[in-house]
């Protein structure tokens, strides 16, 4: 198992993901600069959080034109796993590798806090070591995490079990009160139809060590780095 973390100008969770993969999960990992069109051989691609290109224009809108994104597309087309976290999720949406788009949080302000999410489906490389209905406490930190898609897309996501995480309470209740950003159907993470590309707003790399507030995020890394 090998992983790469793609670094865009303005990425700022790149070293955090790298740290978890290398020091916690003990997976060989390399950084890839966004200008590199050709990746080193890898099993997992991580698109980290941050503010690629300052989030100017729209979140993730400019990063999707980076040469490295060509490799990400090829990698995804070969059915190998791509994990986009926060800004990485936004880039995947802009790149069309996942359906939908991001709007500003319903509160209109940036929000950073631990939230609970519920695992909706375990048939993905990213959730294979979790249980359906399992609750994970993982922090969010974003100003635009308000996931939007039209009715038709939402129906497709539901029919194909592409919704992987939903925001919930610590008891697992789903509802407006537990949705931090107003996302459609309380979506916190989705996969593509082929189930090898996951985008999620919560940051599992921030919840993977005992010294930090939660270790629940490690289950996602352990699933995908099996």
């Amino acid at each position: 198992m090998r992983a790469v973390v793609v670094v865009f100008p303005g990425s700022n969770c790149d070293t955090d993901c790298f740290h978890v993969l290398r020091d916690v999960i003990k997976t060989p990992v390399e950084f890839v600069w966004h200008k590199e069109g050709n990746f080193p051989k890898t099993d997992l691609v991580v698109l980290p959080g941050g503010f690629s290109y300052g989030d100017y224009l729209r979140t993730g809108a400019i990063a999707r034109f980076s040469p490295a994104m060509e490799s990400v597309r090829r990698h995804a087309a070969e059915g190998r796993p791509v994990l986009g976290i926060c800004n990485g999720f936004q880039i995947l949406l802009e790149a069309g590798l996942l359906p939908g788009a991001m709007l500003r949080n319903k509160t209109l302000s940036f929000v950073c806090k631990p939230v609970w999410i519920c695992v909706e489906d375990t048939h993905t490389p990213f959730t294979q070591k979790t249980q359906r209905g399992e609750l994970l406490q993982i922090p969010i930190a974003h100003g635009e995490g308000n996931y939007y898609c039209d009715e038709e897309t939402l129906k497709k996501l539901k029919d194909n079990s592409q919704i992987i995480f939903r925001y919930c309470s610590e008891k697992g209740e789903v509802g407006e009160a537990f949705n931090p950003n107003g996302s459609r159907d309380h979506i916190a993470g989705i996969v593509n139809e082929r189930r090898n590309v996951l985008g999620m707003m919560p940051h599992p790399e921030r919840a993977s060590e005992a010294i930090l507030a939660s270790e629940d995020g490690r289950k996602i890394w352990e699933s995908v780095c099996l």
Binding site: N12, C13, T15, D16, H19, V20, G49, S109, F110, V111, C112, K113, P139, A141, H203, E205, R206, E209, I211, L212, A213
Partner: peptide, 16 residues
């Protein structure tokens, strides 16, 4: 105030 700040990035924050 501080929920508007990213107080966790770098994954070194032990006391919030």
């Amino acid at each position: 105030v501080w929920q508007q700040y990213d107080h966790m990035v770098r994954t070194d924050t032990v006391f919030y």
